[in-house]
Amino acid sequence: MIMKSISRVLIAAGFIALTACSASADNSTNQLKQKLAKQLPDREITSISTTPMKGIYEVVIGKRQIVYTDIKGEYILAGDMIDLAKKSSLTEQRTAELQKTDFSKLPLDQAIKDVRGDGSRVLVVFSDPDCPYCKRLERESLNGINNVTIYTFLMPLSIHPDAERKSKVIWCAADKHAAWSNFMLKDQMAEGAGTCENPIEKNMKLAESLGISGTPALIFKSGQIVSGAIPKEQIEQLLAAK
Rank of each mutant, 00 (worst) to 15 (best):
R165Y: 14
A173M: 09
A207L: 02
F220V: 10
C131I: 05
I200S: 06
P129R: 04
W180L: 15
E191C: 01
L154G: 08
I200L: 12
K166R: 15
P199V: 04
I219H: 02
G144A: 00
F153D: 02
Q188W: 01
F220N: 13
A193Q: 13
D114M: 07
E191A: 11
D128V: 04
N203L: 07
V148N: 03
T215V: 07
W180A: 03
R165T: 15
W180E: 09
S213D: 14
K205D: 14
N147E: 04
G214R: 11
A217H: 07
R139G: 12
G119M: 03
T195L: 14
I159D: 10
L137Y: 01
W171F: 11
L210Q: 01
L157G: 06
G144I: 02
I230F: 02
E140P: 02
T149Q: 07
R165C: 06
D175P: 11
E208A: 14
I150P: 07
R121I: 00
I150M: 02
N182F: 00
I230L: 08
F220L: 06
F153N: 06
E164Q: 12
M155H: 11
K205C: 02
N146T: 14
L154A: 09
V115Y: 00
T195W: 00
V122I: 04
Q224V: 13
S227D: 12
N146R: 12
L185I: 10
L154N: 12
T195A: 13
G119H: 00
S141R: 13
N198H: 13
G228L: 03
L123M: 02
N198A: 11
S181G: 03
D114W: 06
C196L: 01
L123Q: 05
I170T: 13
V122Q: 15
L210I: 06
I219N: 09
P216G: 04
L218H: 05
E140R: 08
E164T: 13
D162P: 03
I145K: 06
N182Y: 00
T149K: 08
L123G: 04
E140V: 15
T149L: 00
L218R: 07
P156Q: 10
K221C: 03
Y151P: 08
D175L: 05
L185V: 10
Q224N: 12
V226A: 09
D175G: 09
V148A: 05
V125N: 11
G214K: 08
S227W: 01
E164L: 04
G192R: 10
N143C: 03
V148D: 05
P199S: 07
V226L: 11
S158M: 04
E140D: 14
S213V: 13
S158C: 02
V125S: 11
L218T: 10
L210C: 06
M184H: 13
T195S: 14
L142I: 08
G117T: 06
G211K: 00
G223A: 08
M184S: 08
G223Q: 09
S167A: 15
T149M: 09
V124L: 03
S158T: 14
Q224R: 12
P156H: 10
P199D: 07
C172I: 08
V148F: 01
W171G: 12
G192P: 11
R139T: 12
K202Q: 15
D175M: 09
L185N: 15
N143Y: 12
S209L: 01
F126C: 04
K176D: 06
L206T: 03
G194S: 06
I159E: 12
G223D: 10
F183H: 14
G119Y: 00
A207W: 01
I219Y: 00
M155A: 05
M155G: 01
F220Y: 14
